[in-house]
Design a protein around this nucleic acid. Sequence first.
DNA 1: CCTTTCTATGACACCGGTGTCTGGTTAGAC
DNA 2: GTCTAACCAGACACCGGTGTCATAGAAAGG
Lengths: 350, 350
Amino acid sequence: MANQKQDEGATAKLTINDIARLAGVSKKTVSRVINRSPLLNRETRDKVEAIIRETGYVPNPQARALALGRNFLIGLIYDNPNAQMVLSMQRGILEALHGTEFELVIRPVDRGSNHVMDDIRGFVTRQRLFGVVVLPPMSENDALMRMLDEQGCRYVRMGSAMLDDPEHMVASNDREAVADAVRHLITQGHRRIGLIAGPHGFRSARERREGFEMALAEAGISLPRSLVADGQYTFESGLSASESLFDLSPRPTAIFASNDEMAAGVLYAARLRGIAVPDELSIIGFDDTPVTTRVWPPLSTVRWPIVAMGRAAALKLIGTAIGEDAEVNEPSMFSSTLIRRGSVAPPAQT
Amino acid sequence: MANQKQDEGATAKLTINDIARLAGVSKKTVSRVINRSPLLNRETRDKVEAIIRETGYVPNPQARALALGRNFLIGLIYDNPNAQMVLSMQRGILEALHGTEFELVIRPVDRGSNHVMDDIRGFVTRQRLFGVVVLPPMSENDALMRMLDEQGCRYVRMGSAMLDDPEHMVASNDREAVADAVRHLITQGHRRIGLIAGPHGFRSARERREGFEMALAEAGISLPRSLVADGQYTFESGLSASESLFDLSPRPTAIFASNDEMAAGVLYAARLRGIAVPDELSIIGFDDTPVTTRVWPPLSTVRWPIVAMGRAAALKLIGTAIGEDAEVNEPSMFSSTLIRRGSVAPPAQT
DNA sequence: CCTTTCTATGACACCGGTGTCTGGTTAGAC
DNA sequence: GTCTAACCAGACACCGGTGTCATAGAAAGG
């Protein structure tokens, strides 16, 4: 709109040739300066650097990518109902990428669709991504990883258990974390503890269920099938799943919901029935999403270090970029902790 | 891991030359096929297309970007406390980008930092982005837009009021939406209505406040300064802001919170004080985030079409790509609607 | 049948960087 | 005073596409 820029971009883009001409050197020398080549005369370097600073020259990443044969784009592939977790993961990855020349390209996919595979293939091959981070539940798809391998696309997968080479995986130990949470309930005196499981096909659902069963088994508590209700990781599914649990007689005195959304559903259902939480019913969720502190009473839950895991995943990916054989010492296994809030109490005396 | 791929990428990347050789034509002809040039012999086209299909050739986007002088990356710049809104916006933009060759690169920034401007400049120039979508409150920064202009970077900004040329802006009409919500409260019989305002410096905070004041003025209700509390769009700020409102005597019978997080804070504070909602206090929030349906009672709120607005923003941006002068007929103004849930009732008879 | 016009294709330079190899200086060794 | 080595910097090809222009062959016109 201003009159002085007729053409696109007032700052007519400078090229390496412009800098070379201004500095009176060859483009290759400028290239050396940019890439911090050690075999450069100090004066030459200073001179070129001064020009670069003055002009504000920025190398064209497309040209660089073309010449180098690889680009600086990391993809994030996800298909997860948990918005909060996706966003935290983005944050973690971006923290790791900050200050590097890498950028993050996001790609939500539809797990249900029968061309997910093609979608993702198109995504990674079209953009020639440097690598991708895959979030659960997509990350549990081994066929996808094989495909990525075939396409020569690096990957790191996130998950609830170590499913792969630690070099390609960042995981939290859901099973143990849930077992801890359930042990906490048992310590409080609970014996009839209900489980709202996550959807079939989610590894996290299985891990959490196994942790639940593990803790009960340890304490010698039997688990009738009726105390396990199926959920879909959604608020609504938590709501309806708890209905079936509430119909039981005797009613469970505590419920572990496999994620916070469902735990919020349990709480809501309890209110609808006039069941007091935590006096008549204890609830523990999983994820530590903000909703846990918005409801009343605030929900006890299991917190896992999403941001740190995202950061670790990204560092694993770009670690190989720095030096092909540079040791990548990011941890692969993260542990979660039980956050105690107001939704757990000893069972009523009855 | 498999023995057949020694080198990176089992599918050694095919180039346009390979296709040209296989098809027995020049690379330019292959290029024409890819770009659907109309002046091509049918047979030639079919032959080349067949080869492309068989081999699974995908043009290198970096080379394309270099030759074309522009790339196919859209940036999303945001600095917003509202996770849900950021994610919905991402979804809307991605919907619009789906099926095109554009990808979305995300870039959260720190508004507080005093090198935000440089950060963003680095982002858009380094990657030579095709264009960016800027979310509030960054989108209210006119200096940023000038800078983007200077860098020759297209942009579309999102906001709560039309701040710019409709070509560069997608906005919702927050003022009118809030006025509607408050009119609803007035219709129910409320006269002492409190406001929890958003942070200074957020245009949305101002618009919502003005809508609030507008509705009261229409009804001839005066607004003492004490009925307005400052918030920061966070749950905690809503919580503490409502304390001051609750200390008033007489207490307001209704509170409009400028976003849902703060509305959730009001609800929480009410519970702490033993104030019944909606019997003794009505609450309306803004945004229609999931938390509104997780709490008890579910919160009435104002819903704005985030996803649709994101889609519109992206289409505006890439619309100019299709044909330089193609009419972009995406709407620029969107309107919000009041969602009635359980947090509003007529004031108590007292 | 020859010229003109149009159509379909190819040759070649170019986009903006990087890798390789070569050549000119300078310094150190004899 | 040479010879050699070390060090710097430049020439040039190349990455994988696209734009421009030339040209061969076919179709149209006289």
